[in-house]
Design a protein around this nucleic acid. Structure first.
Lengths: 198, 198
DNA sequence: AGCAGCGTAGCACGACCGTGCTAGTATGTG
DNA sequence: CACATACTAGCACGGTCGTGCTACGCTGCT
């Protein structure tokens, strides 16, 4: 078997164990068993537990990035932006699981220092995406209003993700999309709305 | 020593271990050592690990609730609302630690089922607070616009908390407060702004 | 004084942990 | 064919884990 495929297989086993039994249950033994390999084989690819955990975090981020980069052309710029945002929200069982694993790995960062960087990378990447989306909507670039609006959009997205994660899988999610739509419309309609009126 | 004080002492030790070594390092032994008691004593209070972890989650939520209930009178209703919101954001090292522990415990919910309920309670409590704040700002009550605005405010607060958590302790936090101010002002200024213009 | 109850201390057990290590086995290359 | 390389398989070690259990001291009631 291809080495990268084996690594991916093991990383996916890590995710599964996290979902089934929590992050504390992630050990070389449980993961190897879940992946259907013996510990020796796992350790041939990942000599230590830290490397295993860190790689599974990196692969997760890579998958998300990949999904984000797939072009989703739309006639209307607002529709395009909303489609992009839907890509990063935990709206279906798969992305919910992804989000949960993400949170769990975040909680292990004291034990596996490398996870901190992975998390920060993901955060900055989403920040950059938000800036890009706001630029698309407003037609402006580099202005303080853009930065402010992007910041706000970013916070809103993370908050919605957190909320969606808290409700049952089968629950209604249109309210979240409504909030996204209203925010996107507001950005598109009023390019000055990012100013602080304190 | 008073029994409740002992339980609190042990719960605080749990929090400290999470911050120092991650959730996976939370065991009856590490926690007992951190609290300066022997395992036998800890187990006299918390017979099993699950009870220990669950109680520490419950106490954390209780502490936050307590802080939220302390009245903070302000002349201006907007100032009052912003003060309340500042109470739930991880703005200082203490509340940052609190937030981190919260996330870590969330990640253990597969292993300790009771944590799920604790987390949901916290979520709903914050939701109720948001409704109350919007009612104060708008003077309305029970209308769909209030519910919508509250939902949105709730998401924004959770998102900002997530963001603040991602930046260094010493970093600037005024941008977050600016966003809070602008949102609060928007709610106060336009009671119809919660409508969806899709 | 005797005694009960509560909290402290700690031993013991079997299980699981990460990791170092060796032996076998398949595979591709000369 | 021989042989190196890559992978699989698994043993062994010292350590930590949760938890059942007993023994000891203190404190207050009768």
């Amino acid at each position: 078997m291809d080495r990268d495929a084996r690594k991916a297989q093991l990383a996916e086993a890590v995710w599964q164990v996290i979902l089934d039994q929590g992050i504390s249950a992630v050990s070389v033994r449980t993961v190897a068993e879940h992946a259907g390999v013996v510990v020796g084989s796992l350790r041939h690819v990942f000599p230590t537990r830290s490397e295993l955990v860190q790689f599974s975090a990196e692969l997760m981020m890579e998958r998300v990035t990949e999904r984000l980069l797939t072009a989703t052309p739309h006639d209307d710029s607002r529709e395009y932006v909303v489609a992009k945002i839907k890509n990063v929200l935990p709206l279906d069982p798969d992305s919910r699981a992804e989000y949960e694993v993400n949170l769990a790995l975040l909680a292990e960062r004291a034990a596996v220092p490398g996870l901190l960087q992975v998390r920060l990378d993901a955060h900055h990447q989403l920040a950059k995406l938000c800036v890009r989306l706001v630029e698309i909507l407003t037609g402006q670039s580099g202005t303080p209003a853009v930065a402010s609006r992007a910041h706000r959009l970013h916070a809103l997205i993370d908050g919605l993700a957190f909320h969606l994660f808290h409700q049952p899988v089968e629950a209604d999610t249109t309210w979240a999309l409504d909030i996204v739509w209203s925010e996107v419309s507001a950005i598109a309609a009023d390019t000055n709305s990012g100013e602080i009126t304190r």
